[in-house]
């Protein structure tokens, strides 16, 4: 009896110690049809119209940056009965066309259609929002722990009421370096340096703003720091007084009034990049406004305001 019992327990233990990790092949995962992915962002200020077209690759397939590139699609942009076909540019791996042939105008709705020779056809539409002017550009300074001052800039604008609005503030700090020892000829040869002003935060790198819960009010960007360009070899040292660093400087404040698809797509893309691979984070599903496909066809409009800084 005892022998039988212990043999049984031994058998059960041995059978139990098999591999608890098993590869599974489930229907629905391997049977996924590939889809077209379209990315295009248009604005009235465009100098070239561009569209990226890719295909999805099944999750189990090897993957690299050029996987799924689509080079032979027919890409058409239409508006009010007029249409424009975009041509593939091998160098930039994108479809493009001259906007002069189909101008992008505020308030107009555009439809983008992509069709491949193997029968895939996707489309998307967007309406170009009006430009929202930058109302004020505020400057401020902050004394850091080490005694240095940090100079900050912020945009404000009036949100149009009773509509959902989304924005992306951007800016540039354009300066001519101060050079006390330079000759007049050297000064004449100086070119202005352009440094981006980051209006994003650690959780919102792109600085996108929604008017949710603040509809119709004056909205502001985050504070963006004025810094010398990272490629400027003569950057100020910690002991430099920043305002002595430049001879002339301008802040270029740009407000992109973007549509909802743009806002949601870019917000999700940033989350996906940040949390990919984190087992505790919820998966990020990238929203799409492309019918029968994936991606984003969105529009935005730009307003600009320059502020010359006093020394």
């Amino acid at each position: 009896m005892n022998t039988t019992l212990w043999c049984s327990i031994g058998f059960l233990t041995l059978t139990g110690c098999q591999n608890l990790r098993q590869e599974v092949d489930l229907d629905g995962l391997t049977q996924q049809p590939n889809k077209l992915i379209v990315a295009a962002f248009i604005s009235p200020q465009d100098t070239v119209l561009t569209v990226k077209v890719n295909r999805t690759r099944p999750i189990q397939d090897p993957y690299n940056a050029t996987s799924g590139l689509v080079t032979n699609a027919r890409v058409t942009l239409t508006n009010a009965g007029r249409s424009l076909t975009l041509v593939y540019n091998t160098t930039h791996q994108q479809y493009q066309a001259d906007p002069a042939r189909l101008p992008i105008r505020s308030g107009q709705t555009y439809t983008l259609t992509v069709q491949t020779p193997d029968g895939l056809r996707v489309s998307g539409s967007c309406t170009v929002p009006p430009a929202v002017p930058v109302q004020t550009v505020s400057l401020d300074s902050l004394e850091e722990v080490n005694g240095n001052k940090q100079y900050l800039v912020r945009l404000a604008w009036q949100d149009p009421p009773r509509t959902k609005n989304f924005y992306q503030p951007i800016g540039a700090f354009v300066y001519l370096r101060s050079c006390g020892t330079c000759s007049s000829a050297e000064k004449a040869r100086q070119r202005p340096v352009r440094a981006p002003i980051p209006f994003g935060t650690s959780t919102n790198l792109s600085g996108l703003v929604s008017d949710d819960l603040r509809d119709g009010s004056v909205l502001t960007s985050e504070w963006g720091a004025l810094r010398a360009d990272s490629t400027d070899k003569a950057r100020s040292t910690p002991n430099t007084v920043f305002r002595d660093y430049y001879a002339r400087a301008t802040v270029t404040a740009v407000l992109l009034h973007v549509d909802e698809a743009y806002y949601r797509y870019h917000t999700a893309a940033e989350l996906a990049a940040r949390y990919d691979g984190n087992p505790f984070a919820e998966p990020v599903i990238i929203p799409s406004n492309i019918k029968d496909g994936l991606g984003c066809f969105a529009a935005y409009n730009k307003s600009i305001r320059n502020v010359v800084l006093k020394r």
Partner: peptide, 19 residues
Amino acid sequence: TIPVARYTLHVNNPERGLN
């Protein structure tokens, strides 16, 4: 929620608004 496919995602370059 399990991924079924992969693709390359392209985003707008807002710096184009400056340059």
